[in-house]
Simulated scan of single mutants.
Amino acid sequence: MDGELFPERVAWRSGPIITGHVVRLMEGYSREVRIGQPILVAVLSTAALVKVVLLLLASVLRAGAAGGARRRWGELRKGPEFLVTPLRLRDGGGVLCEMEIHGHLPQSALEPDDHVQVTVRSQKAEGLAPRVERIVNLTTGQLLTPRTPTLWSHLGPALLLQAGLGVVLLGGILAWVLIGR
């Protein structure tokens, strides 16, 4: 049969572990991480509290504006992008399975015909192939764990430190008010 006119059906197996041979790594594309608005509001509001205190101190000391360039709400709300690479492999029963690798892998990590053991998990969004959590390349003996950016890596250590200081400052103000009464 002609493979172009009658393509082979692809299955989405839920796993959790699928063993087979790599058929093809397809072309990757980018997808955004969704950011929850309540978490973002909490982090930015506690960080803003520290920013206000620093600006007040700077104006008293006439040291100029505190802080550097900051990212806008839309940039933070958009979320980071990560690479999605569809992977097709043929399992022990001869079934062609498709799954998604989220994040980057080394260029030579997977080659066609490599014997692999893949740990997959279904995704929250309906209509998406299962997500690869871990790949054991039995041909080369490599253990591969793709990593995607998270909310915390997207916000960055400086903003998270500032938000942490804001929580401490807010807690100190609340304790002072409650103890003062």
Rank of each mutant, 00 (worst) to 15 (best):
G67V: 01
A158N: 09
L165G: 10
W73F: 12
P86R: 00
V116W: 12
L161C: 10
L55F: 15
D91T: 04
G68K: 05
P106M: 00
K78Q: 14
L76C: 02
W152Y: 11
G164V: 03
A129H: 12
A69I: 02
Q107F: 07
R88I: 06
H104S: 14
S59N: 15
R121T: 08
R131Q: 10
V136I: 10
S108E: 13
G92I: 10
V95W: 14
A63T: 11
E81A: 13
L144A: 03
L159I: 07
L143G: 05
L110T: 01
G166F: 07
G156F: 05
D113G: 06
S108P: 03
V60E: 12
T150Y: 04
G92R: 15
E126F: 11
E133S: 04
T139D: 10
L105F: 06
A129I: 10
R88F: 14
L110Y: 08
L144D: 05
G141T: 08
G79C: 06
E111K: 13
G64F: 08
T85N: 08
L57S: 11
L61N: 09
P146M: 14
G93W: 13
L160E: 06
G93Y: 15
E100L: 07
G94N: 12
T150S: 09
A125M: 11
R131W: 09
D91H: 09
A66G: 01
W152E: 09
D114M: 08
P130L: 03
L89M: 09
A66L: 05
A129T: 11
V132S: 02
P157I: 14
G67S: 04
G74S: 03
L159D: 05
Q123R: 12
R72C: 03
V136L: 03
A129Q: 08
L83T: 15
L76N: 00
G92T: 13
T119D: 08
Q142P: 02
L55M: 14
L144G: 00
T85D: 05
G127V: 06
R147P: 09
L138C: 03
P86C: 01
T145R: 15
L161G: 11
P157A: 15
D91V: 03
P157N: 15
R70V: 06
V136T: 01
V60Y: 13
T148R: 09
E98A: 11
T145E: 15
Q117T: 10
T150P: 01
L159C: 09
L128Y: 13
Q142G: 01
P86G: 04
G68T: 03
L83Q: 10
S122Y: 06
H154E: 02
K78S: 12
A158Q: 08
R62C: 03
A158W: 08
W152D: 11
S59W: 15
V60D: 14
G156A: 07
F82C: 00
T85R: 13
A66N: 02
A58M: 09
E98W: 14
E98H: 11
E98K: 13
E75K: 02
A125C: 06
D114V: 02
P86I: 05
L159A: 10
L89I: 01
A58G: 01
V95L: 13
G93C: 13
G92A: 15
P106N: 04
R131E: 13
I101C: 04
Q142R: 14
P106A: 00
S153G: 07
L144I: 11
V136Y: 10
G94M: 14
R77L: 05
T148L: 06
L155T: 00
N137D: 05
R71L: 07
P80E: 05
